[in-house]
Simulated assay, not measured.
Amino acid sequence: MYIKRILLFIVLAGLVVGGIFSYIVYNAVLSPNTSFNNEEAFVFISSDADFVEVKKQVEPLLENVETFEQIAKRKGYVANVKAGKYAIKKGMNNNEIINSLRANNIPVNVSFNNQETIADLAGRIAAQIEPDSATLLAAFNDGSFIKDKGFTEETKLAMYIPNSYEFFWNTDSEEFRERMAKEYSRFWNDERLKKAEAQGLNPEEVVTLASLVHKETAKVDERPKVAGLYLNRLKRGMLLQADPTVIYALKKNSNDFNLVIKRVLYKDLELDSPYNTYKYAGLPPGPIAMPDISAIDAVLNPEKHDYLYFVANVENFGYHKFAKTLAQHNRNKVQYIQWINAQKINR
């Protein structure tokens, strides 16, 4: 009888201990362990991060960081941290959190448009993925890479077709530029290549001309007309005489691309620069900015007309007045000069 009581006590004690252990395991593994009110929070784990860094990032998001660490050790995550962007959803338990951090690297949308220089592009991209702007700029300016992809120092910006692309946040600078080279090749499909050839241009020349069109007018519906005008000038062997190229030349010459120039002066037209299309015939050596796709498509699908001149339309701001003859252009130009003088815009 005494032995039976002892055995019963041992069994009951075991059940109590087992219950306590199960409760502890449940709390550590299966009970919710988030402390934020939003539906989800995001964690960005850098390529050189260890578990200490991960723990520091997730601690503000958790009710109990100690149980998180226990489960991380049991699941082998402590020694197997993976870089990337990860989501922790409200109400997740430690097991789910660790599983998410191990396997659910979330892509990010990387977008860019209208960057004037390769340095501007590097800064824009650095704000969206892990590499910093200096690392990206070094990769973009790598002479071997530029040459291997068929570009020059002057045309390298043309490789980056503005759009929105899906990347993993921890994509490195070399992977990013390689992806952009592939996107460039994909963009220049047979149809676009044939259209470029029909205009007597190669893809880099199309992008260069598109950068002038882009800078001349922000009105997408006017871009095919402007593109047609510049193509008319090229075919006639005329100087393009594009003010944006002079502005770019002035900025490049001063090594200050933050320079604000609202008015091109006659003295500026004398600047000796291959980008000065008042002085040098044909296209400039490369794009003066990153044109968006609407400007590129405007060059590939230009409006057919006989216009050779244009000037800002002060009666319909943002648009231009077009002319077929210099005499007509000079009449249009008078109104613009009167307006800009009235605004006292001297530079």
Rank of each mutant, 00 (worst) to 15 (best):
F145Y: 14
G200H: 02
I161H: 03
N253R: 04
V81C: 07
A281D: 14
N276V: 09
A342D: 15
Y248A: 06
T208Y: 01
V110D: 10
W169S: 08
K147I: 11
A79N: 14
N114Q: 14
L234D: 08
L283T: 05
A227Q: 05
F112V: 08
P162H: 06
T67Q: 13
N255D: 15
K235L: 03
A312W: 00
V264A: 06
E40Y: 11
I146L: 07
N163Y: 13
N113L: 10
Q115Y: 12
A198C: 04
I45T: 02
K194R: 12
I288Y: 00
L229Y: 00
D120Q: 07
A198V: 01
L193R: 08
L157E: 08
A312D: 13
Q335Y: 00
S173R: 01
K156E: 10
M238R: 01
L212F: 04
A196I: 03
A87S: 13
K219I: 15
N301T: 06
A242M: 06
A218Q: 13
S173N: 10
Y77G: 08
K235R: 14
I345S: 05
N253K: 12
N33I: 05
A72Q: 05
W169P: 03
P32F: 09
N163C: 07
D50R: 05
K324A: 14
A49I: 01
I24H: 03
E205Q: 15
N80W: 01
N313E: 12
F168E: 12
K82Q: 14
I340C: 05
N232T: 04
P162N: 08
K182Y: 09
N64K: 12
L15S: 09
Q328I: 05
G286M: 08
A134I: 11
G200R: 01
A138T: 14
M159L: 15
Y266N: 15
L61R: 01
D268G: 04
K219W: 02
G19L: 09
K324R: 13
G19N: 07
V311R: 01
L326H: 10
A41K: 10
